[in-house]
Structure formats: structure tokens, C-alpha cells
Design a protein around this nucleic acid. Structure first.
Lengths: 121, 121, 121, 121
DNA sequence: GTGGTCTAGACCACC
DNA sequence: GTGGTCTAGACCACA
């Protein structure tokens, strides 16, 4: 998996980000059942308590809900997912704009450069 | 200064990046003289050898040149500086595009979102 | 070994030249593994950092590449090696021509003398 | 003048070489009178005794001869000069051939390369 | 004073 | 064990 965790930031925090990404991008589709905490923990080579903490936070955000007996599920409320997706994307975009500004590019130039590089790909 | 150096990547590498930024953004204009190695080192709270290494690499890239007795100078060749600026910007843009793709946005959507968030600022 | 280093020019520079020669002449064949930095340093009676610097420069030139845990290797790209060989030879030849000119020999005379002395050998 | 003397080899020896060169290349023509020892010494920023020693050696080789009252003269025997020129050139050529061999060029290749580089000049 | 070089010795990540 | 990084402190040439 892509669980490469770095020791520079709290691990549970990195887990949250990566699971969010998997939900947003559809790797874990709305309404689907997640693997068990224990499985996810061993997969990420992480203590189950740490994984548990990450999942709890995601539950607080409304992205997940657990059914005591049958496991944890991704919310079926796609609006919540879309909001999460938008708020993450907004951060990414704002960071990007700031970096480009500090490099000396203004709004129009950013758009131009972006289109140009996208075409090259 | 803005020399906040993190232990997660080589210090000399972060120094290079930050000095590049100062040259590109005009904090150190073309042809201007930089502070002495020792001064820059103490300013960044770093060993002079580490600063020396960073500056040497920038010299290899053609962004700086040194005169043994009188100091180090930013190149007056603005083309080199523009090329450096472009290549850094290209990296930033490519990273950005990849992150947005992994969030599930395609080319057009990225542009739309970018314009929208830019207007809000 | 032939590591006779003279104090008139930077040691790391002389190390670079001599290692280049060993690569070009096939003492260190393409793709082969070099001794460890520490071994080469003690062999040349030089501080490991100095040897490290020489090897790093050769890496920048593309003549070597390093694998963090298993050692440093000569490039397998023989074109790079041939280019290096040619550029060194060019320098040698140009120096030679200049010395002969300052002795008062012109182009044709140099060739004649060269052929003559070569036959005597 | 071009008297740049380096501390790595005996100074009188370097003086000999340079005066030989001036004689061979015609800066001091056959039969011409040299400046006084004292003038040559101050010109080369060297102790007069050192210059004296160099000139004595050249006298032993027959390149110079001194007339007690009127100074030192370059020999008028051009054969001696030609022999000296040839023997120096021979050394230069042999050194050159050895360096090229150690780079992996054989006789024909050396000639080819030499012609090619000479044309580029 | 400037940049440049060198050494000695330490610590790190990786496998 | 490997290469890579960093520090502290020294000395040099140049002007």
C-alpha cells in the first residue's frame, strides 16, 4: 500500500489524511464497508490503537459511522464527502497560489502556466 | 529571517531552495553582492561549511559567482535566473496537478476551482 | 597506488583527475563497484570527507552513481565515459600544441616531429 | 614579464628553463647581449646569486658565453641552439605521447586527434 | 577581511 | 557494513 508514514508528524494524523483521500477519491466508495481496525492496522504497520484513534476522528467528522456488530462504513451522504473534498482541495489550491505568488507569478500568469504544463503531460 | 530549517531534509538543500527563492524574487537582485559566507551562516544559525556547500552548489548552477577576495555575487545573466524561476514553478505546478488529480479533479475542474478561489481572495 | 598528491593544487581536484583516469582507462570498468569511501580515503591517505567530495563531483558529472547501502558504481553509460575521455584528451592536446608553438614549431613541424619520435620508440 | 616562479621546484632551475625558452624562441637572438645579471635578477624578483647560478649553467651548456668586461652573450653557434630546441621539444613530445597512451590512444589516433584539434583553432 | 580547502570526529538512515 | 550530512576548528592565498 501507499501507507508511507513519516515520523515528522503525528501518525494518527497522517492516517486520517490518507483515509480521507481514499474516501474522497472513491477507493472506499460511499456506503462501503471498511476492513476491520485490526486489518487496517497491520496493513499500515501501525498499532491498532493508533488506527482506532484515526477512525474515531473520521467518525466525528461524519465521514464514517460504525455499526456495533457489522463493522465501519463510509457515509452514504455524498454531500458530506463532497464538502470534505472541497475543503481539502481549497487548502491545496490556496497553498499553491501562495507559493506561486511568492515566486512572482500573478493570477493570470498562474492560469497560463497551468494550462501550458497540463498540455505537455 | 525566514530561515526556519527542519530536520527532515538536508539543511544544505533547504538553504539552496531558500537562497534560490531570494534570488528569483529579487531579494538578492542580479549583480548584487551577497553577505559573506560567515555572516549568512551565523544568520541562519548554521555551520559555515554547510552554508558554503549550499553556495557552492548555486555556483555550479551558474546562479552565483565568487570573487576570491571581494565576495559572492548574483549572476547578472537574467536568463539564467528566469530559467531557474521557470523550472521551480514547473515543479510546483506539477506537484499541484498531481495532488488535485489524486483528489479526483480533472484539468478543467482544476482551472475552474482555481479561478473561483482566486476571486474570493 | 599512484596516489602521489602534491600540495600545489587542491587535493580533491587531484583525486578527481586520478579517478577519472582510472575510469577512462578501464581500471574501474563501466558498471563496476568502487571501494568504499573510507577504504579509498585511507588508501590515498586522505580524510574521508575529502574523498567524499571528489566522488560527489564525479557523481554530478554522471560518471558515478551511488546506492545508499551497497556502494558506489561506475556508470554503465559508456557514452559519458567516452565524452570524458575525449574532453580530457582535448585538453592534453591543446596544452601540447601551445607548448610546441612557444618553442617555435608550427603545425606541420609538430606532426613531423611527433611521427619521427614515435618511430624511435 | 612572465617570470612567474613557483615554490615547488628549485628557482634557479625554473630560471634556466625560461631563459632557454627565450633563446630558443628568439626573444634573445643568437649573438645578442643579455641584460646584466643584476637587472635580470631584479626583473625576476630573485636574488642575484640565484640568477648568476642559472646563467652559469647555461654557459656550461654552451648556450651563453661571457666576456669579462662587456657582458654575457647568446652563442652565435645556431647548431647548439637548434640542438637545445630539439632536445627540449623531444621531452615535451615524449611526455605528451605517454599521457595520450595512458588515456588509451595509440599512435595513429594521436595524429588524427592532433590534426583535428589543430584545424579547430 | 574574503572565499577555499582540509581534517577529525560525530550522527543518521538503510539493509 | 554502506553512503550522506553536519559541526568545529584550523590553515591558506589574496588584496
Amino acid at each position: 500500500m501507499n501507507w508511507d508514514l513519516k515520523p515528522d508528524r503525528p501518525i494518527y494524523f497522517q492516517l486520517i489524511e490518507q483515509i480521507e483521500l481514499k474516501i474522497i477519491s472513491g477507493v472506499y466508495p460511499p456506503g462501503s464497508r471498511l476492513p476491520s481496525v485490526r486489518d487496517m492496522a497491520t496493513d499500515a504497520a501501525v498499532n491498532p490503537n493508533t488506527m482506532q484513534r484515526a477512525l474515531s476522528e473520521l467518525e466525528n467528522q461524519g465521514l464514517l459511522h460504525s455499526q456495533r456488530t457489522s463493522g465501519r462504513f463510509v457515509t452514504e451522504n455524498e454531500e458530506i464527502i463532497m464538502n470534505m473534498k472541497y475543503s481539502i482541495a481549497k487548502n491545496v489550491v490556496q497553498e499553491f497560489i501562495e507559493r506561486m505568488h511568492s515566486l512572482g507569478y500573478n493570477g493570470e500568469e498562474i492560469i497560463t502556466l497551468l494550462k501550458q504544463i497540463e498540455e505537455e503531460r
